[in-house]
Amino acid sequence: MSEGMVSSDAVSGTGAVRSGHAFDERRLAEWLAERVPGLGGALRVEQFKGGQSNPTFKLIAQDGRAFVMRRKPVGTLHASAHAVDREYRVLTALGGDGFPVPRTIGLCTDDAVIGSWFYVMEMVEGRIFWDSDLPEVPREERAACFDSMNATMARLHAADFAAIGLGDYGKPGNYVERQVARFSRQYLADADAGRFEAMDRLIEWLPANMPPEQGRSIVHGDFKPDNMVFHPTEPRVIAVLDWELSTLGDPVADFAYNVMMYRMPPGLANAVISPDPVSRGLPGEADYVAAYCRRTGRESLPHLTYYIAFNMFRLAAIVHGIHGRMLRGNASSAHAHVAIKRLAPLAEAAWEQAQRAQRGE
C-alpha cells in the first residue's frame, strides 16, 4: 500500500471519540429525545474513522436504534466551509423527493448544546466501498454497482431543484469560475500549509481556459463510491452521503469528479487501480461516460478533461486545507497526516490533466 493511501480498515467503521472531539453526551441525548418518539436514556457514542472535514459520530440508543450526527469541527474555520445547515437542508429536500439519502431528524444551531452546530439523521445500514476497484464485490456484480452509481448521479442532475425548494441553494451561473476562485483564495491564504508549483500553475491556467457552463443542476461535489451506501446484498445504491460541497452548479463538472477515479495516479485513494478495469468486471471510462450521456440526453462531454483537471485541483486544495488544519491542531481525522501525503502527487496529476486538455485530449 502506498504511503499516500489509508487502508479500508483504518477509515471504515467506528471507534472511540477522539481526543479533542468530545462533547456533552447527556445534552445531546436530551436534544435527540425531544425529536424521536420513544427515545430515552443515555446514548452510546462512537466516532466514524473516515472523513476529513465535519466530524461524524454514530449514536446508539438503548433500544438499539442508530443515528448519525455530523457537527462542525472546533477551531478557526473558513467562513464558507463546514456548513452543516446546508447539508441538512439538501438532505431533507432530496429525501422528500424520493432520492436515496438518509432521513433527517433535526438540525441544531445552538452552540450551547454540544459546542457547535450539528444535525442528526437516521443511519442507513449497508456496504461502503473505500476502494473504487470494489474488491469485496463478486466480479459479476461490479459493473452493476458502477451502473447504479452512474444512474444515481444522472437522477440527481435531473432533479427539479426549484420544485423541491432548492431554487436558491446556489448562486446563478459561473459555478466552475466561482469554485476555482474560492479554492484558489483558500489555498493562497493558508500560509501554514505551504505552496506547490503545480497548484500555482493551475491557479493561472484554469481561469484562462474555462469552457462554457454545461447546464445547471444540484451538484454533490464529492460523488465517489465511499460517499454512498450500497444495499447489503444487492448491487445498488441506497443512500448518498456527505453533502458538504453540494450546491447548484454545472452537472458535467460534478460528473467529472466521479470519472476522476479512472485518472487518479496509482497509489492514491479513490483511484480505479487496475490499468484494465474491464478485466476486473468494471466498465471502462468510455463506456461509463457513454452511460451517463445516454441517461442525461447528451451526445458527448467534449470538455471532460478540463473538468477533471479542475476537480483534481479542487481536491488538492481541500487536502491543502486539511494540512493547514492539522498543523494548527484541528484536523478532524486521525489520518489527516496520511492524507496530506497525497497533496503533491495530486497537484501534479491535475497539472498533467490540464496539459492533456490543452492538447485537446
Rank of each mutant, 00 (worst) to 15 (best):
residue 337 H to Y: 08
residue 279 S to T: 09
residue 56 T to W: 12
residue 213 E to M: 04
residue 350 A to W: 13
residue 166 L to K: 05
residue 21 H to R: 09
residue 125 E to D: 11
residue 68 V to P: 12
residue 222 D to E: 11
residue 272 V to L: 13
residue 252 V to I: 14
residue 361 E to V: 14
residue 156 L to N: 05
residue 27 R to K: 10
residue 46 E to C: 08
residue 32 L to M: 15
residue 161 F to E: 10
residue 322 I to L: 13
residue 343 L to I: 03
residue 297 G to R: 01
residue 49 K to P: 00
residue 181 A to T: 10
residue 183 F to P: 01
residue 256 A to P: 04
residue 133 D to A: 14
residue 46 E to K: 10
residue 17 V to W: 05
residue 244 E to T: 00
residue 115 G to W: 08
residue 226 D to F: 02
residue 298 R to Y: 02
residue 252 V to L: 11
residue 270 N to F: 14
residue 204 E to K: 14
residue 228 M to W: 03
residue 26 R to C: 07
residue 5 M to F: 14
residue 17 V to H: 10
residue 15 G to Y: 04
residue 346 L to C: 02
residue 23 F to M: 07
residue 230 F to K: 01
residue 258 N to Y: 08
residue 277 P to Y: 11
residue 301 L to H: 04
residue 76 T to N: 13
residue 113 V to E: 13
residue 313 F to M: 13
residue 298 R to V: 01
residue 281 G to N: 11
residue 276 D to P: 05
residue 26 R to P: 02
residue 351 W to M: 04
residue 163 A to N: 05
residue 303 H to I: 01
residue 128 I to E: 08
residue 43 L to R: 13
residue 71 R to Y: 04
residue 292 Y to F: 11
residue 19 S to I: 06
residue 127 R to M: 11
residue 91 L to Y: 05
residue 248 L to C: 09
residue 342 R to M: 15
residue 10 A to Q: 08
residue 31 W to S: 06
residue 111 D to I: 01
residue 331 A to Q: 08
residue 166 L to P: 07
residue 16 A to G: 07
residue 231 H to I: 02
residue 1 M to L: 01
residue 58 K to L: 11
residue 216 R to C: 14
residue 204 E to I: 05
residue 343 L to S: 06
residue 42 A to E: 15
residue 44 R to N: 13
residue 287 D to W: 01
residue 300 S to Q: 12
residue 228 M to D: 02
residue 84 V to D: 03
residue 178 R to W: 13
residue 236 R to W: 15
residue 326 M to F: 09
residue 138 P to G: 06
residue 102 P to S: 10
residue 334 A to R: 08
residue 58 K to E: 07
residue 153 M to K: 03
residue 345 P to V: 03
residue 288 Y to G: 01
residue 65 R to I: 09
residue 153 M to R: 03
residue 134 L to K: 12
residue 195 R to Q: 14
residue 34 E to C: 00
residue 151 A to R: 10
residue 267 G to L: 10
residue 96 G to M: 10
residue 87 E to L: 00
residue 290 A to E: 05
residue 25 E to I: 02
residue 341 K to G: 15
residue 350 A to V: 06
residue 106 G to I: 15
residue 234 E to Y: 03
residue 236 R to C: 14
residue 115 G to H: 12
residue 167 G to M: 12
residue 72 K to C: 01
residue 211 P to R: 00
